[in-house]
């Protein structure tokens, strides 16, 4: 059963990822990205990370991809880009070598370090029917006690990002200031 879930979710993830890099229309690429994000959310569920799976769907598939589509609509760039032209001739072979190289190095390291994966933490409580919110409870306990300073910093980061984006995307009214 778990194998079926893994294979289906992996097909979603890889199919979506290939769609992002091969579709010439940016809207299609954004929708392929949704497929990948849902596959990742399924994998989060199979790793007992239920809260993160929900956040993945809400924040990534809900907010970030909608933001992408919104910008595509706003700029009117949903024209199909000709991906067959290659301005720099050796770019694609070099990029393929680098991408496959990174992939190969990572897989080699993962296979070599297979025996390092031993349980040494304080434990992740499994979510059961009796304790449906155990994952959220444990995550909250860690975020709001051990990592509370980082949590507060993320609120500052979001505030700075929002103010910065509003300032940047604002239309400058006076004629001379924009130059």
């Amino acid at each position: 059963m778990e194998l079926v879930v893994f294979v289906l979710a992996a097909a979603m993830v890889l199919g979506g990822a290939l769609g992002v890099i091969t579709r010439s229309n940016p809207v299609h690429a954004a929708l392929s990205l949704v497929l990948t994000l849902f596959g990742i959310a399924v994998m989060f569920v199979s790793h007992n990370a239920h809260f993160l799976a929900a956040v993945q769907v809400i924040v990534y598939a809900g907010a970030i991809v909608v933001l992408f589509l919104f910008v595509i609509m706003l700029l009117g760039v949903d024209k199909t880009e000709d991906i067959n032209i290659e301005p720099i001739t050796v770019q694609r072979p070099l990029a393929a070598i680098i991408g496959l190289g990174i992939m190969g190095i990572l897989i080699a390291a993962i296979v070599a370090a297979d025996d390092v994966l031993v349980s040494r933490g304080s434990g992740i409580a499994a979510t059961t029917v009796e304790n449906p919110d155990e994952n959220v409870r444990q995550l909250a306990r860690s975020i709001f006690s051990d990592n509370v300073f980082a949590f507060e910093l993320t609120s500052v980061l979001l505030l700075v990002a929002v103010i910065g984006t509003v300032l940047m995307a604002r239309r400058v009214k006076s004629s001379g200031a924009g130059k």
Partner: peptide
């Protein structure tokens, strides 16, 4: 996080 049984892996993903 699942492999080493530590919830902090999931906390990092949140950030």
């Amino acid at each position: 996080a699942t492999a080493v049984n530590d919830i902090n892996g999931q906390v990092v993903v949140f950030f």
